[in-house]
Design a protein around this nucleic acid. Sequence first.
DNA 1: CTGTTATTATACCGACCGGTATGTTTACTA
DNA 2: TAGTAAACATACCGGTCGGTATAATAACAG
Lengths: 195, 195
Amino acid sequence: MGSTRKAGRPKVPAADRILRAASEMFYREGIRAVGVDAIAAKADVTKKSLYDNFGSKDALIAAYLRARDERWRTWLLDTVDRQGGTAKERLLSTFDALAEWMKHENPRGCGFVNAAAELPHDGHPARAVVMDQKQWLRGYLAELAAEGGAADPESLAEQLMILHEGANVANSLDISANAAQRAREIASFLVTDLR
Amino acid sequence: MGSTRKAGRPKVPAADRILRAASEMFYREGIRAVGVDAIAAKADVTKKSLYDNFGSKDALIAAYLRARDERWRTWLLDTVDRQGGTAKERLLSTFDALAEWMKHENPRGCGFVNAAAELPHDGHPARAVVMDQKQWLRGYLAELAAEGGAADPESLAEQLMILHEGANVANSLDISANAAQRAREIASFLVTDLR
DNA sequence: CTGTTATTATACCGACCGGTATGTTTACTA
DNA sequence: TAGTAAACATACCGGTCGGTATAATAACAG
C-alpha cells in the first residue's frame, strides 16, 4: 500500500524526512556537530519547514531520541518474545537483542548515553527522554527478574543494566570483539538460580 | 632557541592554568560546548597564550585527555597498591578505586567515553588518547588476571572492562545508587577461581 | 472556484566559532 | 643593564550557529 501520490513530489511527509535525516546525522556525527541547516539540506527541506514542524533544535533532538527509544523498545520486545522461553531465558535474550541492535544500529555506542554526554544540563528536554529510556529498561528487566523468582529483582536489574551499558561502550570502543556475548556470559552467572 | 623552560617560577605557569581550566570545562560542559575564548577567560589568559602553548583546540582537547588519563592511572595504581593483597583481591580493588574516582572526579561519566561520543572521526588526535586509555586498563587487568592464574586472562579482562564501563554509565545516569559496588559484586563471581 | 495550509525560496539577524595579527608590557637572566 | 621570551591587550578575519521574516507556490478541502 505505498502512498504514492503524484510521482513527482512528496512520497514521505516533510516531518518524517526531517526526523530521519536528523536521526542519522545526530547519531553518526554527534548532536552539537550537526547544524539545522545541514539537517534541512539533507532532508531536502527548507529551514522554515523544519522550524514549523519542530519549533527548535532542542525539540528536534528530543524527538530524535523519542523515535530512537521507540525503535529500540520495539526491537527488544519483539526479539525477546520471538525467542520466548522462561523468564530466565528471556533475561538472557535481551543480550541477544542488544548484540543484533549494536551490529546494525548502534556501532557508535548508545545514542542516549552519547546525548547525555553532550547535553549535561538537567533542564534540557533531551535528558528526560534519556532518563526515561534507562528507567524503562531497568523496569522491564526487574519485571522479568521478579517473574523468574529473583530474591531481589531490583538489584538484579541494576546489575544487568550495568552489563548492558558496559557492552555498549565496550563494543563502540573496540574493547571487546563480541561484547554483548561476553555480557551475556556474565549475566548467565547472575540468573542461575532463577526459573 | 635553548632554554624555553627552566628554573622554578613563583606563579603557576600559564600553560597549567589553561589546561586546568580546559579540563574542568570540557568535562563538565562537554567539549564542543566550550569555546576557546571561554577557556582563555577562565584561565585568566589571552587567546594568544593559549595558541602559543597548545597550537589548536584539537591539540588542547588531546592534552586534556592525556592529563586526565595520567591522573586516573596514578589514582588506580596507588589505590590498588595501597590495598595490596593477592592478584584476585587487587582485581577487585580496581572497583574500589573506581568508586572513589567516580565520587569526586567522574560524576558525569567517563571523560574518555564522553569525548569519543563527541568526536567520532578516527583522525581526531583525541581518539588515539581514548583508545590508548582503554587498552591500557584492559592490559593491566589482563596482567593481574594472568598473575591470578586465570584460564583465559584476556577474556576475563574484557569482562571486567565491561563491568567498569557499565558502572561508569550506570553511575552517571542514576541507574544504580552504588554502581561500582554492584559491579564489584559481579566481578567477585568472575574471579572466584583465581588465587 | 476559493480559502487554507503546507512547503518552497531567499535573505537576513546578532552572536559566537576557531584562529590570526599587531603591538605593548612584564619578568627573568646573561 | 641590556636582551629575550613570555605574557599581555586589542582588534580583526571568514564562517557558521540557531532562529526569523517575507513572499511566492503548490496541494487540498469546502
